[in-house]
C-alpha cells in the first residue's frame, strides 16, 4: 500500500516537474526570441546608420565634384567667351569706332555665355532634377554636350517609365553626369550613345563612347580612378550595380543597373 502511495506521489511530482519544465522552457524560448529580435534590431540600426553615413559622404563628394565642375566650366567656357567679348570691346575702344559687326559679335558672345551659365545652373539644380524624369534630365545634359559641337551624343529610351524615389534618381543622374565628365575629359570621343531601358525589375542605363578606351582593372587600382570607383560605390549605395567594359582603342561602355525601390 505504501509503495502504491509512493508511486502516486512520485508520478504527481514528476508531472508537476515536467509541466514546470515546459513552462520554464516556454519562457526561455521567449527570452531567446526577444534577444534575437534585439540583436536584429541593433544590426538593422547599424546598417541604417552606415547607409546614411555613406549617403552623406557620397553627397559631400558629389558637392565637391560639382564645385570643381562649376570652376572648370566657368574657367574653360564662360570665362573664355567673356574674355573674347572683352577683347572685342577693347578693339572697339582702341579704334574709337562703332562697328556694327563687332557689336553684334560682342552681343553674341555675351548671349552664348548666358546660355552656358543657364545650362550649368540647370544641370546642377537638384530641385529641377526632381521635377524632371530621369530620361528628361539625361536628355537635357545631352543637349548641353551636343551644343559644344565636339561630341555627338544621342539617347534612346525603352520600356514604360517607372517612378524612382528622388534620392535614387538624383544619385543615378549624378553617376551619368560623372560618366559624361569622364568621357569629355579623358576619352577623346566623338560619339556618345546613351540607352535607358526600363525593365521589369530594374532600370538599366548604358553609356557608350567611341573614345580611346582603357583597362578598367588597372584604372580602378590607381588613385586617378577615383571617379570610376565613385560610380561603382554610388550604384551599390542605391541598391544597384555598375559595370565598366572597356579596352584600349575600343571605346568604353558604362552600365548602370538600379532596382526599383
Amino acid at each position: 500500500m505504501q509503495d502504491t502511495k509512493d508511486q502516486v506521489i512520485f508520478t504527481i511530482v514528476a508531472v508537476i516537474i515536467i509541466l514546470l519544465f515546459l513552462g520554464v522552457l516556454f519562457l526561455v524560448m521567449l527570452f531567446y526570441y526577444n534577444n534575437k529580435k534585439g540583436q536584429m534590431s541593433k544590426e538593422q540600426q547599424l546598417m541604417k546608420a552606415t547607409f546614411e553615413k555613406q549617403l552623406l559622404e557620397s553627397k559631400l563628394e558629389i558637392q565637391e565634384q560639382t564645385f570643381d565642375m562649376i570652376s572648370q566650366e566657368i574657367h574653360d567656357n564662360v570665362g573664355q567667351i567673356l574674355s573674347l567679348a572683352k577683347v572685342q570691346l577693347g578693339i572697339m575702344e582702341q579704334r574709337h569706332t562703332f562697328e556694327e559687326d563687332l557689336v553684334s559679335n560682342v552681343k553674341e558672345s555675351i548671349s552664348q555665355a548666358m546660355t552656358e551659365l543657364r545650362d550649368i545652373a540647370k544641370s546642377l539644380s537638384s530641385e529641377r532634377m526632381q521635377l524632371l524624369s530621369l530620361p528628361e534630365s539625361i536628355a537635357q545634359e545631352i543637349r548641353r554636350i551636343n551644343r559644344s559641337g565636339i561630341i555627338k551624343a544621342t539617347v534612346s529610351v525603352e520600356g514604360v517609365e517607372k517612378n524612382i524615389p528622388d534620392q535614387q534618381k538624383l544619385i543615378a543622374f549624378r553617376m551619368v553626369q560623372e560618366g559624361f565628365q569622364n568621357i569629355i575629359k579623358h576619352a577623346g570621343a566623338s560619339e556618345i550613345k546613351v540607352s535607358i531601358r526600363y525593365l521589369e525589375e530594374s532600370l538599366h542605363i548604358s553609356i557608350f563612347d567611341n573614345g580611346a578606351g582603357f583597362n578598367p582593372e588597372e584604372e580602378l587600382k590607381k588613385r586617378e580612378g577615383l571617379g570610376l570607383q565613385n560610380i561603382l560605390r554610388r550604384a551599390s549605395l542605391v541598391g544597384g550595380k555598375a559595370n565598366i567594359i572597356s579596352r584600349p582603342g575600343e571605346g568604353t561602355t558604362l552600365e548602370i543597373q538600379i532596382a526599383y525601390a
Partner: peptide, 20 residues
C-alpha cells in the same frame, strides 16, 4: 501548471492521504 495537477487531484490526494 502546478495547481492544475495538485488541486485537480485534490480529492484523490485527500482520500488516499498522499503526503510529502
Amino acid at each position: 501548471l502546478i495547481t492544475l495537477v495538485i488541486l485537480g487531484l485534490h480529492e484523490y490526494i485527500l482520500i488516499n492521504h498522499i503526503e510529502i
